[in-house]
Amino acid sequence: MACARVHKRWSIVTAARTITAGGATKGRSGADRDQLGSRPVRAPGPPTTVWSVAQFRLQGSKVLAVDMTGDAVKAKNGAMVAYDGQMSFKKMTGGGEGLRGMVTRRLTGEQMAVMEVKGHGTCYFADRASEINLVRLQGEKLYVEASNLLCTDAALRTGTTFTGMRGASQGNGLFTTTVEGTGQAAITSDGPAVVLRVTKQYPLQVDPGAYIAHTGGLKQHFQSGVNFRTLIGEGSGEAFQIRFEGEGLVYVQPSERNTVGGEV
């Protein structure tokens, strides 16, 4: 870890850059990671199948570009910022889960206003300057807060699952959206998500406001230590943390806010 001494008595250390004191130009932070244009476009991942599937790639870190050749994706309503080529948009009330899905969704309040985008060309999605994280599913199940789900392959099944009490403290309802199947999904986070592995030896505690998604066989329950209560503060409605046990991955955003990507 490079560590530059700044001036004579203090220095700044970060993972991404080393800062040396100097004039305005010299002293500026070196690599600016979140400039959209300057980021190399990430490779769209290896094609997994022979049939034509919408290709997800990130344009910068906050815009998702989906290349389509006649196929379709499901996306959060209103998340399209631009497209070229021929696209058609279809509103899908209830997330396309049929009657039962609609009823469940209405009961749970887990509204996921979804549209189906179909066509030839490139469609660009973004959601309030949130960071976008690509998740490739190979048969497993992704649990994600509905407000954080931006876009999925049309081939992926989306549903709703009861997740216990977590939602109650986050104002997101008691149910969580699940995405299942094989294909790509894009989830949003306030700042780039940190992916944390949970193993049997190392359970993980997460602030409910920072949780966005998880995969794998994880059991979750609330933990409300008396001491922790003093951390979160009275009145904030967050006197809990979620404890994850088992084997799996948890996606955490570097923010305690639950407003971004939340209510539309």
Partner: peptide, 14 residues
Amino acid sequence: GGVIELPITPQRPV
């Protein structure tokens, strides 16, 4: 949240 540039050409309106 930053800007992306999209080229517009006669064949490809945006």
